[in-house]
């Protein structure tokens, strides 16, 4: 088998995984109810959607959210010298109910995974995720740790990855601008089912581990199950 064929196969496989995870009814974060009702795309609705994308692309409230090292550079990005607010994206809100964008600035570990998912779920649609730093791309320098989740995308959908350890504020500004550009074009990352989801404990398959923990966790507690072997 030639190298190219191999590459091709890998890509194919990757796509099918994505499809498998996506399920139906994906990516309707931008489409208005009106468009669904009319079916086609009349001129006014198209213009309206364009206007809405312009609106969403130019104004966003960020979630005041710090995890690790990158949050220091994130603060610098909000602050005087880099001033993310120039692009209408510099108002941090403490409550997830009022935020549009969550910047995930740091390593996600097993204990925090369920909480991250919860915070993400609390945000109202349409919502966007900027993952900041190598840890949120792949686990970064801590990838081999027993406790580290190999990237934010294991838990929540990510629109923009900003690599770096940590990324400079300029890089984060660039990432946010790219996100705004993407939104203005009406594109967004598909909301896919992630490998690590919050599930009710009672719904888990009854394997050895579940049996062991049965006394400690209630049936209807939400849990996140980490299968480290399957992690990339």
């Amino acid at each position: 088998m030639s190298k190219e064929q191999e590459l091709h196969d890998t890509l194919e496989q990757a796509q099918s995984t994505q499809e498998a995870r996506m399920g139906s009814g994906t990516d309707d974060r931008f489409n208005s109810k009106l468009r669904e009702a009319f079916g086609a795309s009349p001129f006014i609705l198209t213009k309206f959607d364009q206007f809405m994308n312009w609106v969403r692309g130019n104004s966003m409230f960020m979630l005041l959210f710090g995890i690790a090292c990158c949050s220091i550079e994130m603060m610098h990005t909000y602050a005087t010298k880099h001033d993310l607010d120039r692009f209408g994206a510099g108002v941090p809100r403490a409550s997830p109910r009022q935020a549009d964008v969550i910047i995930v600035p740091g390593t996600i570990v097993s204990k925090f995974g369920p909480r991250l998912k919860r915070v993400y779920d609390q945000m109202p649609e349409p919502k966007f995720v900027v993952s900041m730093g190598s840890c949120t791309v792949s686990g970064g320098p801590f990838q081999e740790g027993y406790n580290v989740i190999k990237g934010a995308e294991e838990i929540i959908p990510v629109d923009i990855h900003v690599p770096g350890c940590p990324p400079r504020p300029e890089a984060l500004v660039y990432g946010v601008l790219k996100l705004q550009e993407q939104i203005r074009e009406g594109e967004s990352a598909p909301v896919t089912v992630k490998p690590y989801e919050l599930e009710e404990f009672g719904d888990l398959e009854r394997d050895e581990l579940v049996q062991q923990l049965a006394n400690e966790i209630d049936e209807d507690d939400l849990v996140m199950r980490y299968n480290w072997v399957d992690s990339p």
């Binding site: 602050a79 001033d83 607010d85």
Partner: peptide, 11 residues
């Protein structure tokens, strides 16, 4: 923004 010595929305 002017209290904080930055610019504020300008784009």
């Amino acid at each position: 923004a002017s209290f904080w010595e930055k610019i504020g929305p300008n784009h």
